[in-house]
């Protein structure tokens, strides 16, 4: 269904990008004694699509919040590439998190509006993005008139409207049905290949992380830490055919095995805390 755009073909094996963000020994502990993150070392390279995969309570969302600047680490350092300011980061939440009283256009315009860009000046960028997320013609609708998948598309468009170098996504498709999720996966990959931003994607789903990323960081809980990191050696563009390929199945098997040993290393997932 998706037209194949032959423009850029990148492979997971080739990672030539510069480090965009380096986490060194990052830890986060709370006053109630919970150690959400401990000694996390992570390097995000320009152009990466990195998935943080792990059970509940492994600190993957905390890591994302620290990267986003919403929470400060209690130990360790974050090193940004010198060309990247805080302006260069977009965020997509688990819920669509739209302003319910504002139209689709106004919701996507919001990050620019907060930076003082007028409606007219923002219009070309907003309209182009709405087209890219297949929402052309819906700019005057309000969120409650949209389906769950469409709301998430608005949320992605809003995350990208400032043309961020780094897009942080916190389980964005977890609440969607499978058919919608697959379509959004395809569309997100297409956007990523065309716009060449970097993605850090938090997920519970082995299948989603393998389909999307060129690198998977498996995390373990209690304390939250990086358990194992591995590259997904499958070429882009990936399409529906990839979902049923033997290569995909093998990669999923491997990721599942790593994830299950990560879960066992924490003494089982019986105390899920979210």
């Amino acid at each position: 269904m998706m037209p194949q755009q032959a423009s850029i073909v990148r492979t997971g094996a080739v990672e030539s990008g510069n480090p965009l963000l380096v986490l060194r020994g990052v830890g986060k502990s709370f006053s109630n004694g919970v150690v959400a993150l401990k000694d996390v070392d992570l390097t995000i390279k320009e152009g990466d699509f990195v998935s943080l995969l792990g059970p509940s309570g492994c600190g993957k969302s905390t890591a994302l919040r620290i990267i986003a600047g919403l929470s400060s680490p209690s130990a360790g350092t974050l090193g940004w590439h010198k060309t990247l300011g805080s302006d260069g980061v977009g965020f997509v939440f688990q819920e669509p998190t739209l302003l319910p009283w504002a139209t689709v256009f106004d919701n996507v315009w919001l990050p620019l509006r907060l930076r003082g860009v007028s409606r007219e000046a923002a219009r070309p960028a907003v309209m182009e993005l709405l087209e890219r997320v297949h929402l052309a013609g819906f700019e005057a609708a309000v969120p409650r008139e949209l389906s769950g998948g469409m709301k998430m598309r608005v949320s992605i468009a809003r995350g990208l409207v400032t043309k961020p170098r780094l897009l942080l996504m916190d389980e964005p498709f977890a609440a969607l049905d499978e058919i919608t999720r697959f379509r959004l996966n395809n569309d997100l990959l297409e956007l990523w290949q065309d716009e060449r931003f970097t993605v850090v994607f938090v997920t519970h789903s082995v299948f989603e992380s393998v389909f999307l990323s060129n690198r998977i960081v498996v995390m373990a809980a209690r304390p939250g830490r990086v358990f194992e990191e591995f590259a997904v050696d499958a070429p882009y563009p990936r399409d529906e055919a990839f979902r049923t390929s033997t290569c995909y199945a093998a990669l999923c098997r491997r990721a599942s095995a790593v994830l299950s040993s990560a879960i066992h290393s924490t003494g089982g997932a019986s105390h899920d805390d979210d």
């Binding site: 965020f91 302003l99 907060l114 930076r115």
Partner: peptide
């Protein structure tokens, strides 16, 4: 989350009041 979104986009107190 909306509050976080405003914070990440560097919203001023006034902007947060007026738009959110």
């Amino acid at each position: 989350n909306l509050r976080d979104l405003f914070k990440m986009n560097g919203a001023t107190r006034w902007q947060q009041l007026w738009h959110l």
